[in-house]
């Protein structure tokens, strides 16, 4: 690991100004992705701005019937939260299935969403539930946020402060995990909302995406059979040592069917 300067500001605003002052600085949240990246010398930030001391980035609250989760809230906190469980159970289930207990004790929702790993779980929930990503500068709709592999709409120096999830009528999440890392080979979040059915897929493409085929099928009938009947094209899906594109396409409808069943 190359060495770097280290800062631990008390607020998100101080963190933002440290980023502006140090052009080559990066924020560190749980460090579960960033520290391994630094060890491999795949990144060389001049400074790390640790968000761990910013109390205003932590916490879960019910807001407008939905739920707002501070960027520095850990996966374990989301999984255990009674408010999340009673408002959007699928979100608690998703958080409780990330990696392992030690990853969940450190890893944060902000870090996961900012990172846009192709196999990460949270992006499926953010996109599938039509969440709003709040930053120190603006609010970004989920549909405009994920741009590609490790690529999002965030600009240099922009910090996610919280994510707001509106409450769906029903939602479910199911993934086929990589047996070693638990990242999703394919994960699907299905949601029935006042404005229609939303289906988001992670693991199968360069970043989370919505599936038109499944949204149409489930819009007709929100049932496991409708999900199983949807034909998913394998064009452009990930093809690697873990799974072929054709297998992933098959898994998308299977995971969607299980997610619908879980949504009740």
């Amino acid at each position: 690991m190359y060495d770097f300067g280290y800062h631990r500001p008390d607020t998100a605003a101080d963190a933002a100004s440290l980023l502006t002052k140090n052009g080559e600085a990066k924020v560190v949240a749980g460090g579960m992705t960033l520290i391994p990246t630094l060890k491999q010398r795949l990144a060389q930030p001049s400074d790390l701005v640790d968000l761990g001391g910013a109390a205003d980035l932590k916490g879960i609250k019910i807001e407008g019937g939905g739920i707002t989760i501070g960027a520095m809230t850990t996966h374990a906190e989301v999984a255990r939260s009674g408010d999340v469980q009673k408002t959007i159970l699928a979100l608690a289930v998703l958080a409780g299935g990330i990696g392992d207990p030690q990853v969940r004790n450190r890893g944060t929702i902000g870090g996961s969403v900012a990172n846009s790993d192709p196999g990460a779980d949270y992006p499926a929930a953010v996109l599938g539930l039509g969440a709003k990503i709040r930053t120190n500068k603006r609010e970004i709709a989920a549909d405009n946020f994920f741009k590609g592999m490790f690529e999002t709409a965030l600009q240099d120096g922009e910090i996610i402060t919280a994510i707001h999830f509106p409450k769906p009528e029903k939602a479910g999440y199911c993934k086929h995990p990589n047996p070693a890392s638990r990242y999703a080979i394919v994960g699907v979040l299905v949601a029935k909302t006042a404005s229609g059915v939303r289906v988001a897929v992670t693991g199968a493409g360069p970043c989370a995406f919505r599936s038109k085929e499944l949204e149409v099928a489930l819009g007709g009938s929100f049932s496991a059979d409708a999900a199983k009947g949807a034909k998913i094209k394998s064009d452009g899906l990930n093809n690697d040592l873990h799974a072929t594109a054709a297998y992933r396409a098959h898994l998308v409808s299977v995971m969607a069917a299980r997610a619908v069943a879980a949504a009740g």
């Binding site: 280290y6 631990r8 560190v28 460090g31 579960m32 520290i35 391994p36 060890k39 790390l48 640790d50 761990g52 374990a76 392992d100 207990p101 030690q102 990853v103 004790n105 450190r106 070693a180 890392s181």
Partner: peptide, 25 residues
């Protein structure tokens, strides 16, 4: 590489991988 758990310690009572935590954190 954050996979094996041989390095697990408790940080404020919670189990964490100390190979993926900075001392300054």
């Amino acid at each position: 590489t954050s996979q094996c758990g041989a390095c697990v310690v408790h940080l404020n009572g919670k189990s964490v991988k100390s190979c993926t935590t900075l001392a300054v954190q």
